[in-house]
């Protein structure tokens, strides 16, 4: 499955990047194609391109704050999860899909 995700936390220096790393590695282990955009204190990094967004089967927002440019994902299937759940058990989040 092609999965894209956006991670964001209030301070944007630790949780954002830890969640991104976990989602990518666990997702890959489970056989998914994963790309994660981070919206941390440095702003948007590893930005999702329009082609990647339209090709994705599922969007995951792992965020405790508002996502920037959320309109990009209009019409997609979006799963909202608190970032804490990804850090606690990313496998569980990914099996929910």
């Amino acid at each position: 499955m092609k999965i894209i995700a956006v991670t964001a936390c209030p301070t944007g220096i630790a949780h954002t990047y830890m969640a991104a790393a976990t989602l990518s590695s666990v997702g890959r282990e489970m056989g998914h194609d994963v790309k994660v955009e981070t919206q941390g204190a440095m702003g948007i990094e590893n930005e999702l391109r329009p082609a990647e967004i339209s090709a994705a089967d599922l969007v995951i927002f792992a965020a405790d704050i508002a996502i920037e440019n959320e309109a990009r994902f209009n019409g997609k299937r979006v799963l909202h999860v608190p970032i804490r759940e990804v850090l606690k058990d990313a496998r569980k989040v990914l099996t929910r899909i």
Binding site: C9, P10, T11, G12, A41, D64, I65, A66
Partner: peptide, 13 residues
């Protein structure tokens, strides 16, 4: 909570 945390994330710098 989400709104407040978003505000805080822009305010801290």
């Amino acid at each position: 909570k989400k709104s407040l945390l978003t505000g805080v994330s822009y305010f801290v710098p």
